[in-house]
């Protein structure tokens, strides 16, 4: 059985890069110097994933201030609003404010991703799922929320179609952060379907910061190849209870705490899932983006996943 590894969200910026951003904001560092540093760290991020034989590779999303921001800043009909809390974290994002018809009138991610640093056919791109993007937005324009969700889904689908990614992940914490009415989950699913119909590569949905049971069983019907689960907040019974026909993105490495999971512990978690649930295929990943950790701790966690993958090959 092939067990793969991948990352599921932004990588932490190094202390040097965080300070460079601050210097840049104060006008004390040139844009080129900041860009050079971002590129250097993107290279480092890619290198550590390659060394640990991750199947697909992200560039680390170091130039995204938050997961929503490229779309908040660049979609037509959307403006950048005030600060709001990023789920249950001591982290904040700027709220998208919907002020007109949402359309993709120009490329969103083209100049933000370091495609050229990622080996051919290995690029993974992570964006928010349309429903989450809009649950975190302020709608000042649309009368019907579902019309807005579909317009954003169309815009995202168009954007994804223009990218050379072999794997696109839709990050969807809003689906599990609290239990949603069935009609809301179906709306989110229809939005994902709009993307699915335009994108032929591997499509995954990653849920984090809430137990996956909050979106079950509807989540199993989403038109995606893989469902990512935050195991640090999901009771095991949430996986056992359902017939899991898709690939499981197994978030068994805590992206929000510095306690290190040993490779043996990761292996044993994976084996438990494979032996006690209906899951047939697993991607091992952190529970969310590792952006909540200092970079050196994040890298140890990545290496531990890599070591676990090697051990799992031998099983």
């Amino acid at each position: 059985m092939k067990i793969s590894g991948h990352l599921v969200g932004p990588q932490p910026r190094s202390e040097e890069l965080m300070k460079a951003y601050r210097e840049y904001a104060k006008g004390k560092l040139a844009k080129q110097a900041l860009d050079d540093l971002i590129r250097k760290e993107a290279e480092e991020n890619i290198k550590v994933q390659l060394e640990n034989e991750f199947t697909v590779i992200i560039d680390g999303m170091l130039n995204w201030h938050d997961l929503l921001r490229p779309f908040t800043e660049r979609l037509s009909g959307v403006e950048v609003g005030g600060l709001a809390r990023w789920f249950d974290n001591n982290a904040f994002y700027k709220q998208p404010v919907i002020v007109g018809k949402v359309e993709r009138t120009r490329p969103i991610l083209e100049d933000m991703l370091f495609y050229d640093l990622v080996p051919p056919k290995r690029l993974k791109v992570i964006i928010p799922d349309p429903y989450t993007f809009l649950k975190l937005s302020v709608n000042k324009s649309y009368r019907r929320f579902e019309d807005l969700v579909y317009d954003v889904a169309e815009a995202m689908a168009e954007e994804i179609r223009a990218l050379p990614a072999v794997h696109v992940q839709l990050t969807a914490p809003s689906l599990v952060y609290e239990k949603l009415p069935k009609v809301e989950i179906e709306l989110a699913m229809n939005a994902v379907d709009i993307i699915r119909r335009r994108y032929g590569g591997m499509l995954s949905i990653h849920t984090c910061f809430g137990r996956v049971g909050n979106a079950m069983p509807e989540l199993l019907d989403f038109p995606v190849d893989m469902i990512g689960v935050d195991m640090t907040v999901t009771p095991f019974k949430d996986l056992k209870e359902y017939d899991f026909t898709k690939i499981l993105g197994m978030g068994c490495v805590d992206a929000r705490n510095t306690v290190l999971e040993t490779p043996d512990e990761i292996v044993s978690s994976v084996m438990k899932v494979l032996s006690e649930t209906s899951v047939k295929q697993v991607y091992v990943n952190p529970s969310s983006g590792l952006e909540f950790l200092p970079k050196d701790v994040a890298n140890i966690k990545i290496r531990n996943i890599g070591s676990a993958l090697k051990l799992l090959k031998e099983v």
């Binding site: 932490p12 910026r13 202390e15 965080m18 951003y21 601050r22 904001a25 201030h65 938050d66 600060l83 001591n90 982290a91 904040f92 994002y93 700027k94 510095t258 952006e291 909540f292 950790l293 200092p294 970079k295 050196d296 701790v297």
Partner: peptide, 17 residues
Amino acid sequence: FVGYVKVWDFEIFKKAA
């Protein structure tokens, strides 16, 4: 103290365990 983490945009803090 284990290192700096981002709070939003350019704002960071030195986080402890």
